[in-house]
Write a protein that binds this DNA or RNA. Structure first.
Lengths: 188, 188
DNA sequence: GTCTATACTCGGATAGAC
DNA sequence: GTCTATCCGAGTATAGAC
């Protein structure tokens, strides 16, 4: 695929993200990234002088920005808590392709000896989602402690459901967790 | 470390397992495995003609055997459901070092393009744990459907707590899930 | 800004001595 | 059964033309 033309940055990051999501950070080779993006390896280095790590860093940043827009913003936006949660859940379902796609947070958290250059971003992303869920539960009448507990459990159920869905080769676990989310977070 | 002596097979697999658990399959190099085991690369090939993949396969098999002995057997053994669960939980806490160690099932499930040579073992391990949890809940009075649902959620909470613990750099999520396990599985 | 070509390192794997 | 030595390919990264 000859490509002497400029490539849109957003599109480029999306294509690279797909590779990282499919095989993880360590297993993603520059050849993979080159093939997926349509750019030669050298061209990738022109855009990302820091190499693979910088690509992953920017992919992660872009994914978190999208996450903030599609999940966190709706959770904090207008409407009843249940209505907001419904929007967020629909977007989660789309982003994770109903459980068939992995979570970058899980894939990038595998430590390559050191603590990992992605740890700070991952940590703050988890904290932000827990906080958003907790605020929703709190607003719906739960105590602060209850809300936080439920929020943390919801995040763990989501992550665990992605692991289990992948492990079992079915999307059922993810879909069922998503369906139970309103009850788990706001119910009773 | 000169090592002209025979090495115990169980010990060898344990040392190799540590590497895989720390960095995952793709990032684990033969140099890492050589260093951790004290054997030269060529010596590893003598024991594992199939190379890294065979090492991982046998490490996984050994881990699952240990898992069966330390977790599944106690769950199916004698005593009240609560007492059995307590034993299994204590062993889970030990195996995962209170949330500081990852789960091989999660790490080996990252697909390297193909479905992965570990998928069958991973799938059956998840199914076995869910079945064991479900049997326990069933015995404690839950309906079959309720028991299965709770069992699946318990597995997802455990996996999710390991992901979250790693992501946050704290062991609290794992420990709290472990503490809530009796209530989640048998309670109400 | 993208390409072709290439340098260089590292990882996986084998041969053969002891 | 373990070692030293080595091969080969893949992987990262750079140089320089267009």
């Amino acid at each position: 695929m000859a490509r002497p033309q400029t490539i849109d940055d957003e599109d480029l990051l999306a294509r690279l993200a797909e590779v990282f999501r499919d095989v993880g950070y360590a297993a993603a080779s520059l050849s993979d990234l080159s093939a997926a993006s349509g750019l030669q390896r050298a061209s990738l280095y022109h855009r990302f002088p820091g190499g693979k790590e910088q690509m992953a860093q920017e992919v992660l940043a872009a994914a978190l920005a999208r996450f903030s827009e599609k999940i966190l913003a709706p959770l904090a936006g207008g409407g009843t808590p249940a209505a907001r949660l419904k929007i967020a859940a629909a977007n989660l379902d789309k982003y994770y392709a109903s459980g068939r796609k992995s979570c970058l947070l899980n894939l990038f958290a595998a430590p390559g000896v050191e603590g990992g250059p992605f740890a700070p971003a991952i940590k703050s992303a988890f904290e932000a989602l827990i906080a958003a869920f907790a605020a929703l539960a709190r607003e719906d009448g739960r105590s602060a402690a209850q809300a936080r507990r439920r929020a943390a459990r919801a995040v763990m159920l989501l992550q665990g459901s992605l692991v289990l869905s992948r492990g079992l080769g079915k999307s059922d676990p993810f879909k069922s967790v998503l369906a139970d989310l309103p009850e788990d977070l706001l119910g009773e």
